Amino acid sequence: MTQTLSDIALSMLDLVAVREGGTVADALAIALRTAQHAESLGFKRYWLAEHHNMAGIASSATAVLVGHIAGGTRTMRVGSGGVMLPNHAPLVVAEAFGTLAELYPGRIDLGLGRAPGTDRVTMRALRRDRVETEEDFPRDVAELQQLLGPVRGGQQLIAMPGAGTQVPIWLLGSSLFSARLAAERGLPYAFASHFAPRLLLQALELYRGLFRPSATLAKPYVVIGVPLIAAPTDDEAEFLASSTYQRVLGILTGDRQRLQPPVADFMAGLIPQERAAIADFLAAAVIGGPDTVRAGLARLAEITQADEFMLVSDVFDPALRLRSLDIAAQVMR
């Protein structure tokens, strides 16, 4: 069955960018205002991403931020996109998100990733002497499912809070590993096409083909990350997107900075290899005026049959970022 834009839910992923000339406090305030605006537009959920030791990203204490955003909104689901599970003991995650679920019943999501979300030095600081193996992530996911589920007779380790909250667990990924695991466990799946789109279609085919219904989910449910910069015209959107291009180039070259203001003709000043690398990173991006955005989102809907778009919008001016969400919501309707 062909997916149309009106069938697809709209959500947002926020890395809580610290802007050049701004502060962490500014970034946190902007995140809350953005979430409140997204809620007013009918967005389904608002997720925060865990990253550590990265200039310009203020979302390292993900559970704290989830509580902050949930406390400032009323109906929208709020969650992690995701908690990087190798960095945490499952019991600690269960207690944190169990507490959030008790504070905001029916509104909390727990998205889990298996990457460290940081560099090797920070990874060692987070994990101490722990060495991660391929078997750890599936085992930790299973432990979290048990800790957040009903208490069983004879169960010695109980998350308090957490037990019985049934916080929905999502698996996140940019490769085929989590797609396969989400299918085997009957869990919803979010693909990180906002920064690693290369395996998107292959991962979704694998997930849907191997999916086993569970008590959690009767049929596959797919969210895809979509970098989105919308403006009244294509030219203005391209200008605003230069902040994203600068951020991506910094990631690719190891020169991470705060989110930079837009620069006219930024891409024209790059060498062909840099332009190609940015284009590859942003292959799933939708950038333009309303008609271009509508066409881009419709194409993503057609080729992915996604149930939900998770927008990532790195616009330097917070007001123009809200306008970008306005345009996206309008074209989706």
Rank of each mutant, 00 (worst) to 15 (best):
A218I: 00
A101K: 00
V263I: 14
P150V: 01
A319Y: 08
A55F: 02
G225P: 11
A203P: 06
A94H: 04
A31F: 01
F97G: 13
L147E: 01
Q166N: 14
M84Y: 05
I287W: 01
R321Y: 01
I287S: 04
G106P: 14
R77F: 02
Q257W: 04
L147N: 02
V131A: 15
V222L: 08
A89V: 10
T304V: 05
A268N: 14
I158T: 14
Q273L: 12
N53C: 07
V151C: 07
V131E: 15
I327F: 02
V331L: 15
A279V: 09
R152H: 09
A35W: 10
A319G: 09
Y189R: 06
D255P: 00
I271K: 09
G42I: 07
M332E: 08
A329N: 06
A277V: 12
F309Y: 03
S242L: 14
L200D: 05
L228A: 05
L85R: 11
V121Q: 15
E20D: 12
V83N: 07
Q305G: 14
A285N: 08
S59H: 04
V263C: 13
R114V: 01
D255K: 09
G72S: 07
L240D: 02
E95L: 05
R19H: 07
A295M: 06
L41N: 04
V121E: 15
V141I: 14
S174E: 04
P261L: 11
V131G: 13
S178K: 11
V92K: 10
A9M: 13
L5V: 09
F266P: 13
A115C: 08
V93F: 02
P318D: 06
W47I: 06
E143A: 15
L110G: 00
I30K: 00
P86D: 02
L320Y: 08
Q146I: 08
P168F: 11
M76A: 03
G113Q: 00
V78R: 08
R107C: 03
D136W: 10
A306I: 10
A196D: 06
G71Q: 12
R208P: 09
V16N: 03
M54F: 02
Q273G: 04
V312A: 11
A203M: 05
V24H: 05
P150Q: 01
G22K: 11
K44D: 06
I327S: 00
A89L: 09
V167W: 03
F137V: 13
A264W: 10
V222E: 00
A268K: 15
G79R: 11
Q166S: 11
A329F: 05
E132T: 15
A183Y: 07
A58R: 10
R180N: 13
H37S: 11
